[in-house]
Amino acid sequence: MHSPKAHSPMRTPLGRVRGLGSARSGTDHFFLQRVTGLANLLLAIAFICIVISLAGESYATVRAALGSPVIAVIILLTLLSVTTHMRIGMQVVIEDYVHNEGAKVLCIIANTFFTVAVGLAGAFAVLKISLGG
């Protein structure tokens, strides 16, 4: 935590953090964005093929395809990788443009809620088709 002195207007942000050590998470975010980006690239190619093959097909055909293990796993992996990429990507956008501290925290929480909801709803649908009938 800050010492009372830390709030002195004469101290620069650098001066306040100097000597505290690193947060130990400096490159995690950057690296995860790259890893999920690479995964997304490969998964998106497979996903586009799946969508083209199922476009305009009947309900029964679509369900049979989405319920097959290979396609179900590809879509589950896509949901995991894409929603992670989305969450940390949108967090950077929020941190860049929302400067009010309270609004920023609320936006980041909403970002987490949205991305987790998208991932879980999609995964539930795939698993229901695959396992639940």
Partner: peptide, 25 residues
């Protein structure tokens, strides 16, 4: 990137509709 972020709602709609009923699909 931001457009795709919100566009995933359409993807989830597709999957949920397929998991739902022939009418929803």
């Amino acid at each position: 990137g931001c457009a795709l972020y919100f566009g995933t709602v359409l993807l989830v709609w597709w999957l949920l509709a397929a998991a739902g009923s022939p009418d929803a699909y």
